[in-house]
Design a protein around this nucleic acid. Structure first.
Lengths: 235, 235
DNA sequence: ACGTATTCTTACTCGCCAGTAGGTAATGGA
DNA sequence: TCCATTACCTACTGGCGAGTAAGAATACGT
């Protein structure tokens, strides 16, 4: 190891993204200047990739700027220092994930169906956004207080949400359960999901649907005596 | 943040660990020289604490040496460079955890009892060794290939072990399960344990026994239709 | 007493990387 | 056409922290 990072070759600027053919057709053909909002998206995309690959401290701002196709001072101008950039990544990716799940879960559905759709949306989102997941799950937790708190907030929200789902699911049973009693189970479920996610990264032959189904069965049967006692099936 | 680590005050060497009273009583009263094996233990103890608190990259060798009460070159002389030191930490803490669980699980016992005792040992060990757990679970996974592989090996072993336990538990049932089919469940169980561990760090009012019991119930009932279908109780 | 191996220290070097200074060049409105 | 604004760059600095050189002091066998 001995802290020797790969040296970059001289790196001639690559010939061009769009070859200069039909150059008089476009309104702005040879200009690389792009509006701030576009650059911010590009920077965040690159930052998520690089943070996911190397981790927060290993990730060099130079590498992020290179991956984003822009120079370093622009990052500082648009998104601030490294920690602010990282928080911006966490916020964007967390809200994307929440949004993906939120779109799948319809309040008007039955509790079990909500749970099933939420799980499936979770597995499918992560399978399509591995870098995002890595930043959220693997990086944000590790770095000190500014970042871990940012994520713990989301995590607690997820646990509380699931606990309330499970509590409502058992409300009609003969022996209703307090939300407080339910939280360890909800935490276990969230953790089981995270763990299956990690396991999945090394066993990509399984499908999102299959994994969602396994986890759903585990939860559903775990509370089987309070609910129905039969194997749950997706509709 | 702006990478400004806390500045150490001038810090006079504290007067003395053992005051110079009765100095002619001890065989080696005023000498601070200690044999290599003792220093290695001290260094590993300090390193685990510091790695757990700050993470691998944030942890400065100077801080570890200070925490160990020894100067930095001794660490390099005894345990090598930073990455080698970290690997040494992972190896020691992993084998300690394995050993603690291994002592609790007696091969001659019934499968369910083995699982129960293993879970309890796990929760109890971690509750007594939080820094160790943090290094293992939170740090080792994050750092690049040298370290994550070291831990993934242990983790896979745990998943395989649990899968085989569960498989044997269902072997006599009407519809036996292949170990291969069992692995996602085992991974989910390991992840559930890890997650409850993390959750526990923020909710210390719960007991190791209570959490073990909850998780045991979750697993047991999860396979209830293959086994007995009733709530499992510790003896 | 005397050499030898071991423990232990202070005081450095040197590369990496976050963050910045001080510009240039395109754009778009008046 | 001019000017203000926005987009963008190259080339630096400052310091943090891993790793080391060179030697000092203690134990221990003979």
């Amino acid at each position: 190891m001995h802290h020797a990072r790969g040296e970059r070759p001289p790196e001639e600027r690559p010939p061009d993204e769009q070859p200069p053919s039909e150059r008089s057709e476009r309104p702005k053909p040879k200009s690389r200047r792009l509006p701030r909002s576009v650059r911010e998206r590009q920077i965040l995309d690159a930052a998520v990739r690089v943070f996911a690959e190397h981790g927060f401290h290993q990730a060099a701002m130079d590498e992020i700027s290179e991956a984003a196709g822009i120079s370093k001072p622009m990052i500082y101008a648009y998104l601030g220092a490294k920690d602010e950039l990282f928080v911006a990544c966490i916020r964007r990716e967390a809200s994307r994930l929440i949004e993906a799940i939120g779109e799948a879960v319809d309040e008007s559905l039955a509790t079990d169906e909500q749970l099933w759709r939420g799980l499936r949306a979770f597995f499918e989102y992560v399978s399509d956004n591995r870098a995002s997941w890595t930043v959220l799950h693997r990086q944000a937790n590790i770095q000190g207080e500014p970042f871990s708190g940012e994520l713990a907030e989301w995590r607690d929200r997820a646990v509380a949400l699931i606990a309330s789902l499970l509590t409502r699911a058992t409300a009609a049973a003969e022996q209703p359960v307090q939300t407080e009693q339910m939280e360890p189970f909800a935490a276990a479920l969230v953790g089981a999901g995270e763990s299956m996610m990690d396991w999945w990264l090394d066993h990509p032959e399984h499908t999102a649907d299959g994994l969602s189904r396994r986890l759903m069965n585990l939860v559903w049967m775990g509370f089987g005596d309070m609910l129905h006692g039969h194997r749950w099936k997706p509709s």
